[in-house]
Design a protein around this nucleic acid. Structure first.
Length: 421
RNA sequence: GUGGAUGUAGAUCAAUUGGUAGAUCCUCGGCUUGUGAUGCCGACCGUUGCGGGUUCGAGUCCCGUCGUCCACCCCA
């Protein structure tokens, strides 16, 4: 009869145990981004469909078949954002933030793509994105890569990820190369695997990425993107690599690294891991100097990257780095009657950083003690009838061999001292 | 969109050639009426994802459908 209501396919609930990991990740990243002087921008989740069509590229998979697009009551075509850069550029431009100015921005939130879900790939997924505008030199490219390296360091993931970089050249150089590549491949079309034949139409550069061995053989003699780089892009890339060298950041130049979105040029980079199966890209970005102009602004150089929160959480879990991330209370207050809840609140007032969980719902003393133990709390604060009568509280240590003590309620300072930092 | 695997109690998993479902954990109660963890005893727990079909009989076989997982494609 009535179908059981469940979450939409590919859209997940993040339960408390997991959200603790999310918060750890998010706060670590936000802290670092803040220390680089980036400001948060909060963007709408819905934009006009045209925005994405014009920025991401009409013929990309995202625009062709993955967007959540619908008409609103005014019959305008709206789309749940499939990525963050387009909206960020739109907002910055709309508020005059890009006119002869330098901007360093970051944002976070859900993105939506209608794909078949699998590990590390969901229909609603979450990204943290970082963008800069108005800086054309490679120094800011380096800054952003250094910043990402700091994320992994702070999260303990440095050993899990490797950096791949490439240069796509200017839009013109890229276009020239694309034409060369297409004519080379067209002449050998019948030798290409099926996927690559299709890519030849849709996104020829992605043929370079083919996993088919015959195709790869064919590509060995294909024109190389590196040979088509304009002087400016070449110099840009050289400074980028030498600065990364100087910073001691290891990287691998991957000439086949071609980002899927149309707007990239010059520097592109990806942090990848092999611990996540097929969805190994954990953070990716690059330069998109032409995008602002394309959206009607004046020419503005820009660089940005985005990381997938789900994938990073998965990676943290796979690496076993989530053990210490928890939300256990420091204190569990056991007692009876309304005094208990009032007392717990007094403890919270005295110790603003402590997590104090108060037993509610009554029940036998024994049961309450079990709950206290199960909560993971360090200490049980017992407020029974005797204690209330004497304005005292019993302090019981649940995790260490230490005798419980009975102290006056107004002398709890010594017990709390170890939690004050 | 394509291909493969899979769906049994709140959780993790059993169930012989088809013979009408069982364990462990959790929860609750008791041994222990103001002391958790370790013991022991007991209780609760299912329209076997859903809908059809074959059969005397289906968790088991067949078809469909939905969900999940994995891979391709694509991407964070």
């Amino acid at each position: 009869m009535s179908k059981k209501i469940q979450a939409i396919r590919g859209m997940n609930d993040i339960l408390p145990e997991q959200s603790a990991i999310w918060r750890h990740l998010e706060s670590t990243v936000k802290d670092i981004v803040g220390r680089y002087g980036y400001g948060e921008i909060r963007l709408p989740i819905v934009e006009y469909t045209d925005l994405f069509k014009r920025t991401i590229g009409e013929v990309t998979d995202i625009v062709e078949k993955e967007m959540y697009t619908f008409s609103d009551r005014n019959d305008e075509s709206l789309t749940l954002r499939p990525e963050g850069t387009a909206g960020c550029v739109r907002a910055a431009e709309e508020h005059g933030m890009l006119y002869n100015q330098i901007q360093r921005l970051w944002y976070t939130g859900p993105m939506f793509r209608y794909e078949k879900p699998q590990k590390g790939r969901y229909r609603q997924f979450h990204q943290i994105g970082v963008e800069t505008f108005g800086l054309q030199g490679p120094d800011v490219d380096v800054e952003m890569i250094l910043m990402t390296a700091k994320f992994w360091q702070a999260l303990g993931l440095s050993d899990q990820v490797t950096l791949q970089i490439n240069s796509l050249g200017s839009s013109e150089a890229r276009a020239t190369y694309r034409a060369e590549l297409v004519s080379y491949l067209e002449a050998r079309k019948d030798q290409l695997d099926e996927d690559s034949q299709r890519r030849l139409e849709s996104n020829p550069l992605r043929v370079l990425d083919s996993k088919d061995t015959k195709t790869q053989l064919l590509l060995a003699d294909a024109p190389s993107l590196m040979d088509f780089l304009d002087e400016d892009s070449k110099a840009h890339f050289e400074v980028l690599t030498s600065t990364l060298d100087a910073a001691g950041v290891a990287y691998e130049i991957n000439p086949r690294l071609v980002r899927g979105l149309d707007y990239y040029c010059k520097t592109v980079f990806e942090w990848v891991t092999d611990a996540l199966g097929a969805q190994g890209t954990v953070c990716a970005g690059g330069r998109y100097d032409g995008l602002v102009e394309q959206l009607g602004g004046k020419p503005t150089p820009a660089v940005g990257f985005a990381m997938g929160i789900e994938r990073l959480v998965l990676l943290l879990e796979a690496t076993g780095l989530t053990g210490e991330i928890s939300s256990k209370p420091d204190f569990y207050v056991v007692g009876s009657g309304p005094e208990t809840v009032l007392f717990a609140d007094k403890v919270r007032d005295q110790l603003s950083h402590a997590v104090v969980q108060c037993h509610c719902g009554g029940g036998k003393f024994k049961k309450q003690m079990k709950k206290a133990n199960d909560s993971g709390a360090e200490i049980a604060l017992i407020l029974g009838e005797d204690e209330i009568a004497n304005a005292q509280v019993t302090v019981k240590y649940l995790r260490e061999q230490k005798d419980q003590v009975v102290v006056a309620q107004n002398e709890l300072g010594s017990v709390f001292a170890q939690f004050c930092k």
